[in-house]
Simulated scan of single mutants.
Amino acid sequence: MAASKLQALWNHPAGPKTIHFWAPTFKWGISIANIADFSKPPEKISYPQQVAVTCTGLIWSRYSLVITPKNWNLFSVNVAMAGTGIYQLTRKIRQDYFSEVQEAPVEG
């Protein structure tokens, strides 16, 4: 049974013999890097970068479901990209707009 599943994956139009497999597989590096940045202070997060990661994830997640054959590897990596981007944007927005720490007035 496992051999037939592996054979089906190997021969799939979006399988490991095609760019449709390898491009999304390498794209996982972006999501992994974003996860590694979860420990980065929010003030060092870039709005343009995270908006780009989030939008790319959302747009390509949708696209991966309307093409034939469905590319589940492409779908999963883009859901991860959208999720990590949204999380990073949430951290940045919370720090920039909802932080209760107020700067002390400068006396001079």
Score class of each variant (00 low, 15 high):
Ala80Met: 11
Met1Val: 14
Ser46Asp: 10
Val106Met: 08
Glu43Trp: 11
Tyr97Asn: 05
Met81Asn: 08
Ala3Asp: 15
Asp96Asn: 13
Gly108His: 09
Ala14Phe: 00
Thr54Cys: 08
Ser46Thr: 03
Pro13Asn: 15
Ala82Tyr: 02
Met1Thr: 14
Glu43Pro: 01
Ser39Met: 02
Ala82Glu: 01
His20Ala: 07
Glu100Cys: 03
Gly85Cys: 07
Gly83Met: 04
Ile86Ser: 08
Thr25Asp: 10
Phe21Pro: 01
Ala14Ile: 01
Thr84Arg: 00
Phe98Thr: 11
Asp96Ala: 12
Trp72Tyr: 12
Ser76Leu: 09
Glu43Cys: 14
Ala8Arg: 06
Pro16Asp: 13
Tyr63Ser: 04
Pro48Ser: 05
His12Thr: 04
Ala8Asn: 07
Phe98Gly: 13
Ala82Trp: 00
Ile67Asp: 05
Ser61Thr: 13
Ser64Asp: 01
Ser4Ala: 14
Ile67Ala: 09
Ala3Gly: 15
Pro41Trp: 05
Gly15Thr: 10
Phe38Asp: 03
Ile30Asn: 03
Tyr87Met: 12
Gly108Ser: 11
Thr18Ser: 00
Met81Ile: 03
Trp22Pro: 03
Lys17Gln: 11
Gln102Trp: 08
Leu74Asn: 01
Trp22Thr: 09
Ala33Phe: 13
Pro13Gln: 14
Lys17Met: 13
Pro16Arg: 10
Val79Leu: 05
Thr84Gly: 01
Pro48Gln: 11
Ile35Asn: 06
Pro13Arg: 10
Glu103Arg: 02
Ile86Leu: 10
Glu103Pro: 01
Asn34Ala: 15
Ala14Thr: 12
Asn34Gln: 11
Val77Ala: 09
Phe26Lys: 03
His20Leu: 07
Glu100Ala: 07
Gly108Asp: 15
Tyr63Asp: 10
Thr90Asp: 11
Pro24Leu: 05
Asn78Gly: 09
Trp10Arg: 14
Leu9Met: 14
Ile45Asn: 06
Gly108Val: 15
Ile32Ala: 11
Gly85Tyr: 01
Gln95Gly: 12
Leu58Gln: 00
Gly108Trp: 12
Trp72Asn: 07
Lys17Leu: 09
Ala8Gln: 12
Pro13Ser: 11
Thr84Lys: 02
Ala33Val: 05
Leu74Val: 05
Arg62His: 12
Thr56His: 09
Pro69Met: 07
Ile30Tyr: 06
Asn11Asp: 13
Lys92Leu: 14
Lys70Glu: 04
Tyr87Arg: 06
Gly85Val: 03
Ser46Phe: 13
Pro41Asn: 08
Gly108Gln: 12
Leu74Pro: 00
Ser31Ile: 00
Lys5Pro: 00
Ser46Ile: 02
Gln50Pro: 05
Pro42Ala: 09
Arg94Gly: 15
Glu100Tyr: 03
Asn73Lys: 00
Ala80Leu: 10
Ser64His: 01
Ser39Ile: 02
Tyr87Thr: 09
Phe75Pro: 00
Val77Pro: 06
Lys70Asp: 03
Gln88Trp: 01
Phe21Ser: 03
Ala82Met: 12
Ile86Gln: 02
Met1His: 15
